[in-house]
Design a binder for these strands. Structure first.
Length: 462
RNA sequence: UCCCCUGUAGCUCAGUCGGUAGAGCAGGUGGCUGUUAACCACCCUGUCGGCGGUUCAAGUCCGUCCGGGGGAGCCA
């Protein structure tokens, strides 16, 4: 019988013959016995295969069983006399599918730095840390879909290629089939995009929100989950130029409903990971971020703190001496302020609402004070902003005025404004940076280590 | 994009006052009756990031470019 190692490790010893397929992590030999650690990616733990060399028929094949090689090992599961595992494979036959020369295999059986592993991104999933990240990432993806599915949300595929600069959210990557060495020019000397593939300037999407809103205005509750792109030259441990975003959008929903969903959603996802990936989470708790599993558990059990921007500024300005950048009403919260709020004041996630309209996007609903908008950011310790959302402006006249005030051309957004002309209703949504969520859950310091092949400025080797 | 740090063996790093480099791990060989970060002994390994400069002499000092890390801004 073939089974994944995660399954085998939970079984009791039996006489049933097993075939185990995987890659060798380490080999330890003595005169009469050989120990192999076989890992197939299904769990952090490897299966120990033990070969009795006094009776093993083809000892020569063991020379090819080296760190990194792909093997099938056959035998029966027995109780392990060793202390580190309950069961082990008593192995009497082994097939080497692909050997792995020890003098050139880049992964040694020792600890490597994450920086080094980034240089061998095609092999790093074979390490404990990156393998565990990959499993968590998959589990979180599944949890995202199951949460929304169970709540009656529909998954909408918004376009990757966009011709609208959704929220002015950063520089966009241009998409073109024009000959870069021979660009067609119109009479005024500008590039003639009418000759480009789409007949107009096109870019990779920075957000699926505006398109998502159009489907929320038909299906009521929807979400998107896909890649987004920012061409910002930002070099930090929590930015990527290609990252994944989850964007729910709910019709007949105000900011309070938006915040309720955001909190419930995060807690659901955290709880799923804690329940379904206990050994991986234990690994992160021990070696990556001390106690992260307990922190997540506490987050799941504790209501999020709520605070208006104005109250946050009051709290922060009373401690202005502690900051490099003192705050006053109207300024955007900087990293140090977000961390102070989450780590010192609230000691956990906090939702900050009702920001000044000047520092938020055009589509957010204006409050009656005409100074603040119905925005909400979920801030978490260590990372800062993990979710940004708002109730959308559903009043046509107010929205048009906002666009004009911000020098946006309403004609460019004609279809978006149509939503306010035909059956407009209050609605709200938010965006969650998927990779940042993985960072938060695992405690991984650098966002480049939670996505298989990170894209950033000057970095797209793989 | 700005500020700071950094680049030496396959990996992680040390290298003093400028005098042609060395430690752990990895790897190899041998040993070891059950190991699990295996252990013990011996052995191998260098374009000191690139280019230029100062000097009798540069890993070391200077300039410059490139790579990596941290912080900031921007955001998710």
């Amino acid at each position: 019988m073939k089974h994944r190692i995660s399954h085998i490790l939970k079984q009791k010893p039996s006489d049933e013959r097993l075939v185990v397929e995987g890659w060798i992590r380490t080999k330890r030999m003595s005169k009469t016995v050989c120990f192999l650690e076989i890992n197939d990616g299904s769990s952090l733990a490897s299966l120990q295969a033990v070969i009795d060399l006094t009776s093993f028929a083809s000892a020569k094949t063991l020379e090819d069983v080296t760190t990194g090689s792909a093997v099938s090992a056959e035998g029966i599961l027995v109780q392990s006399p060793g202390g580190n595992q309950a069961v082990e494979l008593s192995c009497d036959a082994i097939t080497v599918h692909g050997s792995s020369p020890v003098d050139s295999y880049p992964l040694q059986k020792k600890r490597h730095t994450l920086e080094y592993l980034r240089e061998i991104a095609h092999l790093r999933a074979r390490t404990n840390t990156i393998g565990a990240v990959a499993r968590i990432r998959s589990e979180v993806s599944y949890a995202v879909h199951s949460y929304f599915h169970d709540k009656g949300f529909y998954y909408v595929h918004t376009p990757i290629i966009s011709t609208s600069d959704a929220e002015g959210a950063g520089q966009m990557f241009q998409v073109t089939t024009l000959d870069m060495l021979n660009l067609p020019k119109s009479s005024d000397g500008q590039i003639d995009y009418q000759q480009d593939f789409f007949g107009k300037k096109a870019s990779l999407t920075v957000s699926g929100q505006l398109e998502g809103e159009t489907y929320a205005m038909a299906l009521k509750n929807i979400y998107t989950f896909g890649p987004t792109f920012r061409a910002e030259n930002s070099n930090t441990k929590r930015h990527l130029s290609e990252f994944w975003m989850i964007e729910p959008e709910m019709a007949f929903c105000d900011l309070e409903g938006d915040m309720d969903i955001a909190e419930e959603f995060l807690k659901y996802v955290f709880n799923q990971v804690l329940t379904n990936c206990p050994s991986d989470m234990q690994f992160f708790s021990r070696f990556i971020e001390k106690g992260i599993a307990d922190v997540l558990q506490q987050v799941v059990e504790t209501p999020f703190t709520h605070m208006t921007y104005t109250d946050a500024i009051k709290e922060l300005s009373a401690n202005n001496g502690k900051f490099d950048f003192p705050v006053s009403w109207g300024v955007d919260l900087q990293t140090e302020h977000e961390r102070y709020l989450t780590e010192q004041v609230c000691k956990g996630p906090v939702i900050v609402t009702d920001y000044p309209k000047e520092i938020k996007a055009f589509y957010m609903k204006m409050n009656d004070d005409e100074k603040t908008v119905r925005a909400m950011d979920v801030l978490v310790p260590r990372l800062g902003e993990i979710i940004g959302g708002s109730e959308r402006e559903s009043r046509l006249d107010v929205l048009e005025k906002r666009m004009v005030d911000l020098s946006l051309n309403p004609e460019d957004y004609w279809w978006y404004l149509d939503l306010r002309r035909f059956g407009s209703v209050k609605h709200a949504g938010f965006g969650l940076g998927f990779d940042r969520a993985i960072q938060y859950i695992t405690g991984m310091q650098n966002i480049r280590d939670v996505i298989p092949y990170p894209r950033a400025a000057k970095q797209a080797e793989f």
